[in-house]
Computed example of a mutant assay.
Amino acid sequence: MAVNPWQPPYDHHAAAAPGAGEPQTTYGITEEIEGDARLKNVVETAVGNWNTVLREVGAQGDLIKRGTQSWPSEPDAAAIQLSLGEVTNPFGLGGGLTTPDCGGPDGNVCKETVTFDRETIRDLDEDSGVHLVAHELGHALGLDHSKYPVADDEVMSQEGTMGVAPPTKPTQEEARAVLALYGGSAS
């Protein structure tokens, strides 16, 4: 097994839904994404790809579910909110940006807002769109960019794929890193 290149992970991640038994978190989409069948499909595919690989490494069910959970400041909100807007990424890369709103005893339990640049995501082919959403979901789930890319198929790599279709689902190593953050046991 490859060395986990995501250590240490971000110092924050989307909060797990309380009382859910198995670890899970929630996501929501704005009406603008909901009303665009292609973008909604891109989001659902990226979420489905994360959940599939998470189950492959030991999650008992879907870690990421559409819905809401209760917060001290808001009674009903998703832990990860996906939206469209104008994104000026400080690194000049990609078409998405993940920003946390953190609290909790250690300040690391967060609601994560993922904003995709409206024009960029609509201009991407389907695989590139799924890759972008899966990559930003990885950030919302607590992963940073891979520090030592060990494979071309890492969704969290900051490196481009140079003429190769971008990865649309996380590697098992990436999924194990997320599962560890949420208290699940990975195989």
Rank of each mutant, 00 (worst) to 15 (best):
T120A: 13
A14S: 08
M156Y: 04
T88N: 12
E154W: 11
G129K: 05
T25G: 02
E112D: 02
Q69A: 14
V133W: 09
R122A: 15
E44T: 07
G129F: 03
T98F: 01
P166C: 03
D76E: 15
T115S: 03
D144M: 04
T120I: 08
E34Q: 14
C110D: 01
L124K: 10
Q158E: 08
M1V: 02
L132R: 14
Q172M: 02
D62K: 09
V47G: 05
D11W: 13
E22W: 09
R118Y: 01
D62Y: 09
E136P: 11
E44C: 11
L39K: 05
F116E: 10
Q60C: 10
T113Q: 15
Y10T: 14
A14N: 00
H145S: 02
I64T: 03
Y148N: 13
L124E: 11
C102R: 12
G48S: 11
T52W: 04
Q60H: 09
D144F: 01
V164T: 12
D76R: 12
P167R: 02
D36G: 00
A15Y: 01
M156Q: 08
D106M: 13
A15Q: 07
W6H: 05
F91E: 15
D125N: 15
S70N: 14
E126W: 07
I80S: 08
G19N: 12
S128K: 03
T161E: 11
G19D: 10
V53S: 08
T168D: 10
G48Q: 09
D62P: 10
G19L: 10
G94H: 03
A134Y: 00
D36P: 04
E44V: 03
S70Y: 01
D62A: 14
G96S: 15
S83D: 07
V109Y: 02
G21M: 13
S185N: 13
L97A: 11
T161S: 15
L93F: 10
R118Q: 08
A79H: 00
L132A: 15
G160A: 01
A175C: 06
E126Q: 11
L141D: 00
A2N: 10
K65H: 09
A177V: 09
A186G: 06
P75A: 15
E34S: 13
D152E: 12
G92L: 04
M1G: 06
P170E: 08
T99I: 15
C110T: 06
L124V: 09
G85L: 03
